[in-house]
Simulated scan of single mutants.
Amino acid sequence: MVAYFKGWLDDLRLAAGLLTRLPVPQPDDALPQGLARAQRAFPLVGALIGLCIGLIDRALLGIGIPSLAAAALALGASAALTGAMHEDGLADVGDGFGGGRDRAAKLAIMRDSRLGTYGALVLLVSFAARLSALASLPLAAIVPTLVVAHALARAAIPVLAANMPLARDDGLGASAGQPETASVVAAVIVAAAIALLCLPAKAALLAIAVTAAGAAAIALLAWRQIGGVTGDVFGAAEQIGETAVLVMLAARLS
C-alpha cells in the first residue's frame, strides 16, 4: 500500500513538472520510463491548475476588478503557470493543418516556432470563447467549473496517446511514451470523479460528453491531416476540451 501511494505521488510530481512551470522536485528514476505512467495523474494536475486560476479570478473580482478584466488576467495567469504549452500546441496545429499542402509540409510547419495567420486566428477564437465564458459564470460556479474543465481536458491526453499512432518519432509526444491501459483508465476515472464531485450530476455528465466529443474530433482531424498525433495535437486537444467545457457550463449556469 505504501508503494502504491508513493507511485501516485511520484507520478503527480512528474506530471506537475511536465505540465507546469513549477519547480517540482522529480523522482530520481522518473525518466523516461515513468512519463507514460505519470499520465494517469494529468487530471489531478489539471484540477490543481484550475483551482489556482479560479481562486485568482475570485480574488480579482473580490477587489472590484470587472469580470471581463478579471477573467483575462486569470487566463493570463493560467498561461504563465503552464508555460502556455497547450496554447502553443493549438497554434501549431492551426498553422500546420491550415497551411500545409501535404503531411510532410504540415509537420514541418508545426515544428516551426513562428506564429502564422491560422494559428493566430485559432488562438484568438479559443481565448475569446474562454474569456467570455469565464466572465459570464456565476461567482459560486467559477472555481468548480475551472477545476472540472482543466481536469477533464488533461484526461484527454492519455486517451489519445494510448489509442492513436504517433505522426513522428521525436518530440514531446514521442518522449512521453504510450501509457498502458491501466493508466488511461485511472486518468479517466479520476477526471470523471472530479467532475461528479464538483458539479451536479447532469452538468458533470455533459462536461464529460463534450470533452470526449472534442477529443474524438481532434483525433479524427489529426488522423486525416498527418496520420497520427504529436505533442502539439495533445495541446490542441487540451485547449479544445477546456474551451468546450467552459462554454457549455457557462451556457447552463449563467
Rank of each mutant, 00 (worst) to 15 (best):
residue 2 V to G: 05
residue 3 A to W: 08
residue 7 G to T: 10
residue 8 W to M: 07
residue 10 D to W: 04
residue 14 L to Q: 00
residue 15 A to L: 10
residue 15 A to R: 02
residue 17 G to C: 10
residue 18 L to E: 01
residue 22 L to I: 13
residue 26 Q to V: 15
residue 27 P to F: 13
residue 27 P to N: 05
residue 28 D to S: 09
residue 31 L to F: 11
residue 31 L to M: 12
residue 36 A to Y: 04
residue 36 A to N: 05
residue 37 R to Q: 08
residue 40 R to W: 05
residue 40 R to F: 05
residue 42 F to V: 05
residue 44 L to N: 00
residue 46 G to Y: 03
residue 47 A to M: 14
residue 48 L to V: 10
residue 49 I to F: 02
residue 49 I to H: 01
residue 51 L to K: 03
residue 51 L to C: 05
residue 52 C to M: 14
residue 52 C to R: 00
residue 55 L to V: 12
residue 56 I to N: 08
residue 57 D to M: 11
residue 58 R to K: 10
residue 59 A to E: 06
residue 59 A to H: 10
residue 60 L to F: 09
residue 61 L to Q: 14
residue 62 G to P: 02
residue 62 G to E: 11
residue 64 G to T: 11
residue 67 S to A: 11
residue 69 A to G: 14
residue 69 A to I: 15
residue 72 A to N: 07
residue 72 A to F: 10
residue 77 A to I: 05
residue 78 S to W: 15
residue 79 A to Y: 07
residue 79 A to H: 05
residue 82 T to K: 06
residue 82 T to D: 07
residue 82 T to E: 10
residue 94 G to N: 07
residue 95 D to V: 06
residue 96 G to E: 04
residue 100 G to F: 01
residue 101 R to D: 14
residue 103 R to N: 13
residue 105 A to P: 00
residue 107 L to R: 03
residue 110 M to V: 13
residue 113 S to D: 13
residue 117 T to W: 10
residue 118 Y to E: 02
residue 119 G to H: 00
residue 122 V to R: 00
residue 131 L to P: 11
residue 132 S to H: 09
residue 133 A to Y: 07
residue 133 A to D: 09
residue 135 A to G: 11
residue 135 A to K: 08
residue 135 A to M: 14
residue 136 S to C: 14
residue 137 L to W: 08
residue 137 L to H: 06
residue 141 A to T: 10
residue 143 V to M: 15
residue 143 V to C: 15
residue 146 L to K: 04
residue 147 V to S: 04
residue 148 V to F: 08
residue 150 H to E: 11
residue 150 H to R: 02
residue 155 A to N: 05
residue 159 V to M: 11
residue 159 V to P: 00
residue 161 A to Y: 01
residue 161 A to F: 02
residue 161 A to K: 00
residue 162 A to C: 14
residue 163 N to S: 12
residue 166 L to T: 12
residue 167 A to D: 09
residue 167 A to C: 15
residue 169 D to N: 15
residue 172 L to K: 00
residue 174 A to D: 07
residue 174 A to Q: 07
residue 176 A to I: 09
residue 176 A to P: 02
residue 180 E to V: 12
residue 182 A to D: 13
residue 185 V to T: 11
residue 190 V to T: 12
residue 192 A to T: 06
residue 192 A to D: 06
residue 195 A to D: 05
residue 198 C to H: 02
residue 201 A to Y: 05
residue 207 A to S: 15
residue 207 A to V: 03
residue 209 A to I: 06
residue 212 A to N: 03
residue 212 A to P: 01
residue 215 A to W: 00
residue 216 A to W: 06
residue 218 I to M: 04
residue 218 I to V: 12
residue 221 L to C: 05
residue 223 W to K: 14
residue 225 Q to M: 14
residue 226 I to K: 03
residue 233 V to M: 04
residue 235 G to Y: 07
residue 236 A to R: 00
residue 237 A to Y: 08
residue 238 E to G: 11
residue 239 Q to E: 11
residue 241 G to W: 10
residue 243 T to Y: 02
residue 245 V to P: 02
residue 249 L to F: 09
residue 249 L to V: 14
residue 252 R to A: 07
residue 254 S to A: 08
